[in-house]
């Protein structure tokens, strides 16, 4: 009684997912594009801050560093809803950044996702680069490069490992719904992305459609990962 409809739903979701893609549905296309744009921009923004921060933490030794590392690792678990609320209160017209008028816009979603994933990028980058720094430290000091100069060197030499870090950030960004729902408002045609569309269809009770959208999202994330991996392999073969 319970399992039969569920099987049917799964079946129909799969068919619907294929149908959505095959139709090249314009609304879906726009939602997909916005999702990609928001999450990729958020990753780029977070990388700009998070990767150098992670590299700096990998090379710098200062009192309280251990505390910073622990805090950063803990921030990886920042609930999206909390990140969303924080940005909501900042960007609300009644908040400190209200005059910018960014609430309920894609820009707000980018900021919230960037806040969410910057600690992830920083923490993972620190881990990856610290191992590399252990190997490089003496040689770079012999060349007269201090920790500051080591940061760009490590970022560049760690580029292939860092790509995986970026993909982890992208995965988290494109999968989260709490933050973009709150600061974007899930406005149709303007701030609706894959995850908020899935949440909407779920609450409308159209579970097969929600599941179908979920499958499309997974396919997109898979494609982005495959592309990145492919490029990485090509570049790695050239540069080592």
């Amino acid at each position: 009684m319970v399992s039969l409809p569920a099987m049917n739903d799964l079946h129909s979701a799969f068919g619907q997912a294929l149908g959505l893609v095959a139709d090249g549905d314009a609304t879906l296309g726009n939602i997909v594009l916005l999702s990609l744009r928001v999450s990729l921009t958020a990753v780029a923004l977070a990388a700009l801050v998070g990767l150098p921060l992670g590299a700096l933490l990998a090379v710098a030794r200062f009192p309280g560093r251990g505390g910073v590392v622990v805090a950063l690792n803990a921030l990886m678990g920042l609930p999206p809803v909390v990140a969303g609320l924080l940005i909501y209160l900042l960007l609300s017209r009644s908040g400190p950044l209200g005059p910018l008028g960014l609430l309920f816009t894609p820009t707000a979603m980018v900021i919230a996702q960037a806040l969410l994933i910057a600690p992830i990028l920083a923490a993972l980058a620190r881990q990856v680069l610290e191992a590399m720094w252990e190997e490089y430290a003496e040689q770079l000091r012999s060349f007269g490069a201090g920790p500051w100069r080591a940061v760009p060197t490590l970022l560049w030499d760690g580029r292939f490992a860092l790509l995986t870090v970026l993909l982890a950030g992208f995965g988290r960004a494109s999968a989260e719904v709490g933050a973009v729902m709150i600061v974007g408002g899930n406005i149709e045609g303007f701030t609706r992305v894959m995850t908020t569309a899935i949440a909407l269809e779920t609450s409308k009770g159209d579970l097969p459609l929600a599941l179908a959208l979920g499958m499309v999202l997974m396919a997109i994330v898979l494609t982005v990962n495959a592309l990145a991996q492919g490029l990485r392999d090509i570049a790695a073969r050239q540069a080592g």
Binding site: Y136, E138, Q139, S142, G144, D157, G158, F160, A239, G240
Partner: peptide
């Protein structure tokens, strides 16, 4: 001023950058 600028060292285990 900085005698290290006049020195170089080759380590027992070579440390090569991940570049060409």
């Amino acid at each position: 001023a900085d005698p290290r600028r006049h020195q170089a060292m080759v380590f027992q285990r070579p440390v090569l950058l991940r570049r060409s």
